[in-house]
């Protein structure tokens, strides 16, 4: 066994790949994928801070008793409501040719109530709580499991890992690797490590920034954020999805197909018998998420297709299971790589 040589070779492969994965213009969109949620939570933070300040200075002094607010019934008259509750802290009127719409906003000191009147009669009420950490933590958990793991990291890994082999076949430069005195298994390992470094650096940074943004208004501690868990799950997601898409890029001329199949397989996870469940990535990832997210009530049907909650497994088992799936897929990739031929003309 020649571990020293192999390690040096893996380092050399990683060196070569780094430039491609981190700096290429074609990989720019992965950064966009990772930056989008950070921006989202930045927006949220700005919004929370501003509305909090506004609430304290201009809304809270107008507080009305909660009982009075709850007593208003649909169909009530605009003048009656104003007479009972007093001057609202905000009033908006929308006048069209035939109809007028009016929104009156009140508060009980912590929540806000907005009454919507159409031509002077009450049509609906919407209430909003003030932002609080529990609610937001739950929203983050939902966001993380249903959107970040399943869509963003998923597609990011498709981009990064499929490119490792298929991208170089497209570019007609894979043969340079195959003509070096490197075992194909070592090559697969090196490429995988390179992809893993790129993916986990990009996405773990994104997770950390999201959590940081998210925590600012609540002065939350790192423990209460479960930051370590979230970042760990992010890295494991890159590992798991990475191995699958490395294999896909190695064998499939059109990696769109395997990606779609994996996407559907992971979505169908909920309905699978428990033995099959374990051959998936999302099952283990979901078991490791620190806060269990409730399935969203009014989820978009397109998204609902992709979403399910798997019943959890103990953490240690989940990590082992994920590593086992990854190892299996990588071993198979290495095996396939030994039979890899150069055939650039095929697509």
């Amino acid at each position: 066994m020649n571990w020293q040589l192999w390690l040096a070779q893996i380092r050399a492969v990683v060196r070569l790949e780094m430039r491609k994965t981190f700096l290429s213009r074609r990989g720019l969109w992965v950064y966009l994928l990772a930056a989008a949620p950070v921006l989202l939570f930045f927006g949220r933070t700005v919004d929370v801070m501003r509305s909090r300040e506004w609430f304290d200075t201009s809304v809270a002094p107008h507080a009305v008793s909660r009982a009075a607010l709850e007593s208003i019934q649909p169909g009530a008259n605009l003048e009656d409501v104003e007479a009972r509750l007093g001057e609202p802290y905000s009033r908006r009127v929308f006048q069209s040719r035939r109809h007028s719409q009016t929104w009156l906003s009140y508060t009980d000191g912590s929540n806000t109530y907005t009454f919507r009147f159409s031509d002077g009669t009450l049509e609906g009420v919407s209430t909003r709580d003030r932002a609080n950490f529990q609610d937001d933590a739950l929203i983050y958990a939902t966001f993380f499991q249903f959107f970040y793991l399943r869509l963003l990291i998923f597609f990011g890994c498709v981009g990064i890992f499929v490119n490792l082999f298929r991208g170089e076949m497209m570019n007609k430069s894979l043969h340079f690797y195959l003509l070096a005195p490197v075992r194909r298994e070592v090559l697969v390992a090196g490429k995988f490590v390179a992809g893993l470094i790129a993916a986990s650096v990009i996405f773990c940074t994104s997770t950390a920034l999201q959590l940081w943004m998210f925590s600012i208004p609540f002065h939350a501690t790192i423990e209460s954020l479960h930051a370590a868990n979230y970042i760990g799950v992010t890295a494991l997601a890159c590992l798991g999805y990475g191995s699958v898409f490395l294999a896909a890029g190695l064998i499939a001329v059109n990696p769109l197909l395997p990606a779609a199949i994996v996407l559907l397989w992971e979505a169908a996870n909920l309905f699978l018998p428990s033995a099959l469940k374990k051959i998936s990535i999302i099952f283990y990832l979901q078991s490791l998420c620190p806060v269990l997210a409730p399935p969203e009530k009014d989820m978009n049907p397109l998204l609902a297709l992709l979403v399910n909650s798997a019943e959890p497994t103990p953490a240690a088992l989940a990590i082992l299971g994920l590593l086992a799936v990854t190892a299996l897929v990588l071993t198979w990739s290495a095996f396939r790589a030994r039979k890899l031929e150069i055939n650039y003309s095929s697509d």
Binding site: L16, R19, K20, L23, S24, E168, N171, K172, S173, H175, F176, Y344
Partner: peptide, 8 residues
Amino acid sequence: FDAFPKGL
């Protein structure tokens, strides 16, 4: 093949 790794 007249192709090379990008950017080197």
